Computed example of a mutant assay.
Amino acid sequence: MQAWGAGAIAALALLATSATAQDWMPLDADNTLVMETTQGRVIIVLSPQMAPQGVARIKDLTRQGFYNGLLFHRVIDHFVAQTGNPNNKDGGKSALPDLPLEAVFRLAETVPHSVVAQPDGATTGFIGAVPYVAMTDRHMPPAGDGSRAVRAWGTHCRGVLGMGRGDATDSANSELYLMRDTVTRLDRDYTVVGRVVSGFEVVAALRVGEPPSQPDAMTRMRLLSDMPASGRPKLEIMNTAGGAFATLVKAKRAEKGADFSVCDIMLPVHEVR
């Protein structure tokens, strides 16, 4: 489970009573994965703005049923849980062609994003539910042609979903990994495609090993939009453009002080009744 300090817990309690309808938004059904595992359900929000080809590939394979039944064949404490290989070990892939690396992308002014910190030489924040790092705004080209953008990349906070690859840079295919801890040394080497918004405790409970002696499995993976309405998880996620999110960031920043980073923020979700 997520560890919140006293200040952030107090802020969450306040948000529960003071947040308005504008502070919450429905999950994007076309870009939300519902992963059923032997340890429980994990809900992941995808970011096509960061990795359009990677997200499209995962959605295609999900709709084919490719991931159903595949094992978590490599699970390392404080690192990653890997899955998505049809032979349930490193090196397997789908019959589709490999993908180019999408580790770094252009973050344009026109892409909705929310800044939470500006450490020296960088800007950090969220695109939807997924944390990113970018060059500072002062590196953005002058306005004029409507295409102002800076270099940015998804950062490997706990719960981030990425695409595994082989030794070749452009070899992502079907393998997935879930971050069981924050390991930012992976940034700019692997394609970040999304982040867990519900089910962090499930990822933490996956049995460890390379491979585990009794590996867990993805029993079924679906897109939220493909599920019958009666069976869909009824969740809303905090809107990063709202006042409640600003309050949450302020509380977490006060709690962490100089150690504060974008990885300290996990967007709350709540059930809609």
Rank of each mutant, 00 (worst) to 15 (best):
I43H: 11
N68Q: 06
F200T: 08
R253A: 13
F260A: 06
Y177T: 01
G84A: 03
A103D: 11
G257R: 06
M140W: 07
G243A: 14
A241F: 14
L15K: 12
R232E: 09
H156G: 09
T20M: 01
R207N: 12
S174C: 02
L107G: 02
A122V: 06
G257N: 11
V196K: 03
T191Q: 02
L71H: 03
H78I: 04
S114A: 08
G146M: 14
V249I: 12
T191P: 01
V193W: 03
G5D: 07
G194L: 00
M1W: 03
G231M: 06
S174M: 01
M221W: 00
T17V: 14
S171R: 08
H78C: 07
A251Q: 03
L178Q: 01
M25C: 02
V133T: 14
I265N: 01
D189G: 15
D90I: 13
L206V: 12
W153Q: 12
R158W: 13
P268A: 09
L161M: 11
T37A: 11
M135W: 05
M238P: 00
S18Y: 05
Y190L: 02
S213L: 00
D181L: 06
A81F: 05
M179H: 08
M140N: 05
P112L: 08
P86H: 09
L101M: 11
H73I: 00
R195L: 11
G166L: 08
K250P: 00
T110F: 03
R138Q: 15
T20K: 03
M35I: 15
F105M: 15
R138D: 15
A16L: 09
T20A: 05
E175K: 01
V193G: 07
P112S: 11
R74P: 08
K234Q: 15
I127M: 07
A51D: 07
A152Y: 08
L14F: 06
P215N: 10
L71M: 09
A152M: 09
L70T: 11
T219L: 10
T38C: 04
G65Q: 03
A95H: 02
R138H: 15
F66E: 03
Y177K: 01
F66T: 02
I265Q: 12
S230Q: 14
A246E: 11
M218Q: 06
E210L: 10
A117F: 07
G243T: 13
A29L: 03
P228K: 02
L176R: 11
G69M: 01
W153D: 14
G84E: 00
Q22K: 03
P141W: 00
